[in-house]
Design a protein around this nucleic acid. Structure first.
Lengths: 253, 253
DNA sequence: CCCAATTTGTTCGTATGTATC
DNA sequence: AGATACATACGAACAAATTGG
């Protein structure tokens, strides 16, 4: 369990619920509570902190919003320590990038170095079941899309392939980062409709690289996996770049 | 501005404040509000959603906890759209990794590929002022530490060097990831007291590499910067590894 | 410096919803 | 079905903070 990230906030004095939330958080860490452990009930917290129900409730909402606890009503209910899901963590982090506009280049600069590293270490460690999962995703875009709708779905699915790979990493940090970057790219693709002028070359090359990649992963050939992924990333970047230019061009005219 | 990350929550029905928070969030995005823009006042929201004050307040707390808004009281006060700081984003993400224990190897696997890439692109783009900042940090550990306290401070400062570099990136994604990883390593170092048996070799080599690195950055020699950083990371990893083993050994005996 | 207006912040009492036994 | 234990929600009043006169 990594340490607490105590921050010296140079910001205005936090409201009381915020302080209470922080106090509870510290208390939980100090007690070494684990996921599923129960926190004191509302009345107990009211007594301990000497504050009203409303304030305590706002505090637990804050913790809930941060993904640290979850609450259930009914007998045996209460507030429980909660291990946040990767999805939730990604959603929270997305908020940060909402106002900072990322470019395709920003995203691909990361993918270009991380994803080859990922698959190099993944080679030879995957179960046949995991490999089958990857192939199942690939099957969803085995044949060219016929509608714009289908085109978008295939684009997303081909990114889902990379999200799957990320989840298979035994390095939680690597797994999270790649999954996040992949999702960000997926969101960006949909938002900017980068799938719209169907790009047959992107589809065909991507499919081929992914097939070679799965073969290398199955054979336990890390060097080959790394090489293939690097090529995959490089061509994807340049084709996406072109796609972006095309979208902008069509928008201008 | 990147797109909204709408999530299909497979979890139990969200509480009303959560729903309200989500609704407000969507409304803000749809209105295209920017940082600093004001949201409707509490009474207005109460009217719009037909809900009690407490519920509305909990909703805004949720948004505040996620770093999306900030509230001020008094005339001219209210709830305002807020661009979350990198520090806050890092703190929120730290929560995710609280229960997942990261190893030194997990962290260095990322650093090893990202940091060389970072400095390769940074070379030749830094102002003399920025270079001076880096040198100022280096000055704080110019001479060997004499106390354990000082040892810890120097260890943290040498990581601050990397945090600074991260902030100088023109790729927000790269900048954030490296800053986050650096902070995580810093927290881990402090938490596990990895600075404790003073490691003269780590100190000396790190200092030398950082000096070479700054020179390369100043000269605009990206290839050299990349090479030096790669060496820096590799030696740091193995020395930290040894440090970890030493701490464990001393703990066992 | 104080006073008044505005807007969020906090409290308490009460009632309702929900899940367990 | 009913009792119990818990969170959830509402409403009205009051407190605190901030701005401008």
């Amino acid at each position: 369990m990594p340490p607490a990230t105590t921050r010296s906030t140079p910001e205005g004095k936090p409201s009381r619920p915020t302080q209470v939330a922080e106090a509870i958080k510290q208390w939980v860490m100090q007690q070494g509570l684990h996921s599923g452990d129960r926190l004191p009930s509302e009345p107990e917290l009211i007594a301990r902190f000497g504050m009203s129900k409303g304030t305590i409730r706002e505090a637990t909402r804050i913790l809930e919003a941060q993904g640290l606890v979850r609450t259930r009503s009914g007998p045996g209910g209460g507030t429980f320590v909660h291990q946040m899901s990767p999805e939730r963590a990604r959603a929270l982090l997305s908020n940060y990038f909402y106002f900072r506009d990322l470019t395709l280049n920003d995203i691909y600069q990361i993918r270009m170095v991380l994803e080859p590293e990922l698959v190099a270490h993944l080679a030879g460690t995957l179960t046949e079941d995991q490999l089958a999962q990857l192939e199942a995703v690939m099957a969803s875009y085995a044949h060219p899309a016929e509608t714009a709708e289908e085109e978008r779905e295939q684009h997303i699915a081909s990114l889902r392939f990379h999200g799957l790979l990320a989840e298979m990493s035994d390095n939680p940090l690597m797994g999270f980062i790649i999954a996040f970057v992949t999702q960000t790219l997926s969101d960006l693709t949909v938002y900017r409709k980068l799938y719209d002028p169907p790009n047959h070359q992107l589809w065909a090359k991507g499919k081929a690289y992914q097939a070679r990649l799965v073969a290398a992963l199955r054979n336990g050939d890390g060097a080959e996996a790394r090489r293939v992924m690097a090529l995959h990333m490089a061509t994807a970047q340049s084709l996406m770049q072109a796609q972006e230019a095309e979208v902008i061009r069509r928008f201008m005219t």
